[in-house]
Amino acid sequence: MEETKSKNKINSILMQLLPWTIPVALIILWQIAVDVGWITSSFIPSPLSVLANGVSLWKSGELPKNISISLYRALVGFAIGGGLGFILGFLNGVSKVMRALFDTTIQMLRNIPHLALIPVVILVLGIGETAKISLVAIGCLFPMYINTYHGITSVDPHLIEMGKSYGLSKYKLFSKVIFPGALPTILMGVRYALGVMWTTLIVAETVSADSGIGYMSTNAQQFMNMKTIFLCIIIYAILGKLSDFIAKTLENILLDWR
């Protein structure tokens, strides 16, 4: 008994480590490839030199500054865009009039690539923080809208009928039946919007930025500073993974009934 128990424990630890084996193996292979000279290090720097570059940028204060500014833009943009998307999705989900009024327009706007919007955003909002945050907000709006709308309209109509028949107030009907029923889909939207948030931010930070990870990356690109380019890629990967992790855990907590 004891033996199988500890065996199971080892197995579960191994299963948790399994997703990391490929990234780690790739990094080790990469380091070896550079050290041995299979690839020229001027174009592909070794992981260790990227790390060293990161440490020195961190010490100079540049990396903390840019990460924090990027995070600020990302979060505010996500809050505004995600919030608006949620409100619009909610209104269109519950009201037929609102749906008729907004849905077609939103569906049309949804398919415009964010990049194409840059000149318009610059024209209307200038090149300051507002423009960058707006771009992120636009990016986050649509996934949140679609998932909220879809989540609300696809709540089991039987449950809604039950709620009505049991005399629930409109507020209660929403807070106890419709919203929790739509929550799994809405949280999927949150996860998706978080992904879009980072990708849009890179684009947004090429618009006359003098700070942020996206700026660091494009600036490095201009001078083919590969170490910094790779560093930025890695930072994006970490930030993306981190926000996905938060969203996933949030799902586990909020949807513990599943």
């Binding site: 039987h158 449950l159 039946v177 929790p180 029923g181 949807l255 009934w257």
Partner: peptide, 8 residues
């Protein structure tokens, strides 16, 4: 069908 709310 029971129509219980699974999240409560």
């Amino acid at each position: 069908d029971d129509r219980l709310l699974p999240w409560l």
